[in-house]
Design a protein around this nucleic acid. Structure first.
Length: 510
RNA sequence: GCCCCGUUCGUCUAGAGGCCUAGGACGCUAGAUUUUCAUUCUAGAAACCAGGGGUUCGAAUCCCCUACGGGGUACCA
């Protein structure tokens, strides 16, 4: 039975997405596209107390930036809507009732306070309380109560929840596409709440009903869901949907770099690298957390970084475009253990993408940074500068550090370099070079190079001595690309001016 | 506590019984190139394959135990 691949990414709008969630979405996307299937976005907002305004919009915007497109879902549309669970509220009741009718679920009238007390009682005896096949008969529910008692409670509108009735002594087998077979015994599993007293389903009920109705073929989600997967499998069985039950794949988690715990939204900026795709401001605390976009990462690089955090192609290739990833992605090559984010490698990836990007594209972005610094210059010129210095940069913003001297005269001169290189005869030699450079009609990097080299050789001077001092005069320190290229780009006049200023300044103010 | 998942260089990982004196990448160190810094190139250090038992002629690879890490254990997702 070949069925169309349909996968979903189902975040809860409790805040911005962190990169772990983004990676889960990416793997879903790659899997769907690889198999010519659909990728949908479903908003799981069954917990109304955790609603965070703006989160849903943020999620959509974040994927928009990343360049990952949903085929269907919230904010996109499709034939299986609505795609926000709170908008599907009415239909869950019907399915919950079906479970009551078939005996797979039961009413539980215990209040949260009562359950708390039971838990405390158990703790006193160093035992752990679980609402399950061993304890449910002593609690307040439709299994322990008589039919009359139950009905009377219902008639009085007593708040209740619906719990799943796990059968006794049943082994539940999960076929996980990443982990193989996982077995669990039903006696150890608790009777999870399926339907809450506020009239909303829990994740467990809602996700099974929706996945079924939306014809989801594969559930690819984080490992934190593995323990509740037996419940999900049992629910498919209870509904009689076993034949169309999706296949499961539980992804390893993204861990905090310090070594303990999974990455979480609350990590914000604390870890020294962005945890979110886009900058996020908490609507209540007003605290802002940085994003990859704002930190200067390219979306293509972020995709590449995330793809390789828990998956590899089996080859030694590491730079992949989205299309290449779709081509070779497979669930089998996902590793089983959690991965820590490596900031240094992330920067390296961005560096690779910066080198791959055409200079005019980079120049466009750099131009807006230059504008902010009140530097008015044409794109063509910036493009040339970018070509000379981009290999030294990881981010577009690094360009300034590597090329500010193209736009500004040195304000000071590197002291160490002066000490080492600025010998007494240097000013005289540089004055001679000024005259030589000034005599060049067609001033460019080649002519300047030839003249200066001829001068150095003709006078049997030390190449390093002259070149370093010339660089110091023009750049202010010992860095930068080929000096003659710099001279050509800033022009003859500016070049001469800078050398003259250096001759007049260096060594005179002490 | 109980249940589940995992464990190869600092990090991400290759490895599906002999090709492993364990390969690559980032980072690190050194050398080369260069007019400087960076890039680049080359080389190097870096994992007794968590530990211990098996199985086998042979185990990083299969099995068991232990340790450690992670996840779950909510009317959260």
């Amino acid at each position: 039975m070949e069925r169309k691949v349909r996968v979903r990414f189902a975040p809860s709008p409790t805040g911005p997405l962190h990169i772990g969630g983004v990676r889960t979405a990416l793997y879903n996307y790659l899997f769907a596209k690889k198999h010519g299937g659909d990728f949908l976005l479903r908003i799981e907002d069954t917990d109304q107390t955790r609603f965070v305004p703006g989160a849903e919009e943020y999620i959509i915007k974040a994927f928009d930036w990343l360049g990952i497109k949903f085929d269907e879902g919230q904010g996109i549309g499709g034939d299986y809507g609505p795609y926000r669970q709170s908008d599907r509220k009415e239909m869950y009741k019907e399915y919950a009732d079906k479970l009551i009718d078939s005996g797979w679920a039961y009413y539980a009238f215990d209040t949260p306070e009562e359950l708390d007390n039971v838990r405390k009682e158990f703790e006193k005896e160093k035992k752990n309380f679980q609402y399950d096949c061993n304890t449910r008969s002593s609690l307040k529910n439709s299994l322990s109560l008589s039919k009359e008692e139950t009905n009377s409670l219902l008639e009085k509108n007593t708040p209740y929840v619906l719990r799943f009735k796990f059968p006794k002594d049943t082994e539940i087998l999960i076929h996980d596409l990443i982990r193989g077979e996982v077995r669990m015994n039903s006696n150890l599993l608790d009777d999870k709440v399926l339907y809450k007293s506020d009239g909303m389903p829990t994740y467990h009920l809602a996700n099974i009903v929706d996945d079924h109705l939306m014809k989801i073929s594969h559930v690819i989600r984080g490992e934190e869901w593995l323990p509740s997967c037996p419940l999900h499998v049992m629910l498919y069985k209870a509904f009689g949907w076993e034949s169309t039950m999706p296949e499961f794949a539980h992804l390893p988690l993204l861990l905090k770099p310090e070594g303990n715990g999974k990455l979480s939204k609350r990590d914000g900026d604390r870890l020294g690298f962005p945890v979110f795709l886009l900058e996020w401001q908490d609507p209540i605390s007003k605290e802002t957390s940085s994003g990859y976009r704002e930190a200067g990462y390219f979306p293509e690089a972020v995709i590449n970084i995330l793809a390789l955090l828990g998956w590899n192609s089996g080859t030694e290739k590491e730079i992949f475009s989205l299309d290449e990833l779709i081509e070779i992605f497979s669930l089998e090559r996902i590793s089983k253990s959690g991965a820590k984010f490596d900031l240094e490698k992330a920067k390296w990836f961005n560096h690779q993408y910066l080198q791959l990007m055409p200079n005019n594209k980079i120049a466009e972005q750099y131009l807006s940074i230059l504008k902010e610094k009140n530097i008015d210059i044409c794109l063509e010129h910036v493009e040339k500068i970018v070509g000379l210095v981009k290999e030294r940069c990881n981010f577009v913003a690094d360009l300034w550090e590597q090329s500010s001297f193209f736009f500004l005269k040195p304000e000071s001169y590197d002291e160490k370099l002066i000490k080492k290189r600025w010998k007494d005869e240097v000013p005289q030699r540089l004055s001679e070079i000024v005259i030589i450079l000034n005599s060049i009609e067609d001033f460019n990097s080649h002519t300047a190079h030839d003249k200066v080299h001829a001068f150095i050789e003709g006078n049997e001077l030390n190449m390093g001595q002259i070149m370093n001092c010339l660089r110091l005069s023009i750049v202010g320190e010992g860095k930068g690309p080929d000096l003659f290229e710099i001279m050509a780009l800033i022009g003859k006049e500016e070049t001469l001016e800078r050398i003259n200023i250096a001759i007049e300044t260096i060594g005179k103010n002490e």
